[in-house]
Simulated scan of single mutants.
Amino acid sequence: MTCAPPRCESKIAESLKIVFMGTPALAARILERLVTASGAGFRVVGVVTRPNQPRGRGLGTEPSAVGALAARHEIPTLKPVKIRTPEFLSELKAFAPDLLVVAAYGRILPKSILDAARIAPINVHASLLPRHRGAAPIEAAILAGDAETGVTIMRIVERMDAGPIYLQRSISIESGDTQGTLKEKLAELGADAVLEAIDLAARGALVETPQDEAIASYTAQVEKKDAVIDWTASAVQIERMTRAYDPWPVARTRLGGDEVLIWRAAVAHEDGSVESPGTIVSVKPSPVVQCGTGRLRLLEVQAAGRKRISAADFLRGKRVEAGAQFGS
């Protein structure tokens, strides 16, 4: 374990200047907590977020969740299209940041940007590193059936999520947790951990622990195609999909020629003959579908352009009988 660069100081007298870098709602919640807690010890002097994106049918542009929050608090904000430019680096350095605090910014930061922080560039990652490095750690933890997850505060290096760890905080993954509920929990946990790390930085007490590369695992950006259900998978794995992809991109399948979104499901324990995967083996009291291993009880579904309803009501409205087949 080593002290954080550039040196181990017993005390940093002045209020720390922080530049926050982030984009989605999870990052916005962390920023909000930092703004609320700022005072004599530190202050958020600037924000960097992704450029405004088209939204809605009119294709007007809207700021990211972080950009909108920064605007409400009147925090100077940069929204660079490209970050590897002298112009952006100059604008960033003008803030004279002591710390860069990064949470789901969405880009790999080059050394020139990392070096702009006087004390350290730190990242809030929503997993217990080195497990689940990369873009989708929350989804990956649910899909893997992990009993716990958490947040890691680490120093950023030029390799993805590979920097030395400052601190970690963990929580249990409950049986009903979805991507959405875990993001809310981890945003709060991440904010607590960041505030603790800032306090350590202010006292010159950040300590680095290298990650164990031998047990590192990686995740990829989730795409809509990842949420298409393969009914030859186990009922356990498909149930995890429904939670990992809620609220986006939502686990999905086809019934006839129509797409059906599967919002909630539970592993069923009925005995019986093994039908081909995707077969609806019963419809009452709620539909049960044969999987590659085990069976899945569908609880809440949604047809394209319709509201979410109980799976029983959906199949009753469609007049679907046992023996019908989900899948392509």
Rank of each mutant, 00 (worst) to 15 (best):
M21C: 15
G278L: 13
Y245P: 02
L16A: 09
P86G: 07
I280L: 15
D146H: 03
I309E: 14
G39Q: 12
A28N: 08
G58F: 10
A71F: 08
I83A: 06
A147N: 12
A68Y: 00
L255T: 03
A136H: 06
S286I: 05
V222W: 06
G46R: 05
S127R: 07
L100H: 03
A244Q: 10
P110L: 12
N123P: 00
E158Y: 07
L195K: 05
M1Y: 04
E174Y: 01
P51T: 11
P277C: 05
V66D: 03
R264Q: 15
V260N: 01
W248I: 02
S172G: 03
P285I: 10
A126G: 10
G56H: 04
A94E: 15
D177T: 04
G292N: 10
Q302E: 13
V289D: 01
E208W: 12
S10Q: 11
R316P: 00
S38P: 12
T149L: 04
K284C: 00
S282V: 02
G204E: 04
K111M: 15
F88T: 02
G317T: 14
I280E: 11
A197S: 10
R7A: 14
V250L: 11
T178K: 02
P130T: 06
A71W: 04
K284F: 03
D199Q: 07
A27N: 12
E9I: 06
E259G: 13
L89R: 08
L59W: 01
E208S: 12
G60F: 02
S127Y: 06
I142D: 06
P110Y: 05
E239V: 00
I229A: 10
V151K: 03
P80F: 08
A13H: 09
L195T: 05
A28V: 10
M21Q: 08
G323P: 09
I153V: 13
E259N: 08
A201C: 13
E148D: 13
R240E: 08
A201W: 14
P97C: 07
E196L: 07
I215D: 00
V228T: 10
R133A: 02
D271S: 11
E91V: 10
Q290K: 03
A233S: 14
V260Y: 05
I309C: 11
L206N: 03
D212A: 09
R72G: 03
V274P: 05
S170H: 09
A233I: 00
D226S: 08
V301F: 01
A322N: 07
R252M: 13
T36P: 03
L99E: 05
A220Y: 09
F20W: 06
P97I: 00
E62L: 08
P277Q: 04
R306Y: 02
I83S: 06
E188K: 14
A187V: 07
P76M: 12
R7S: 14
E259V: 15
L100W: 05
M154A: 10
R107D: 00
P287Q: 04
G134Y: 06
G60N: 02
N52H: 08
L92F: 11
F20E: 04
R295A: 10
A40E: 14
R319C: 02
H125R: 02
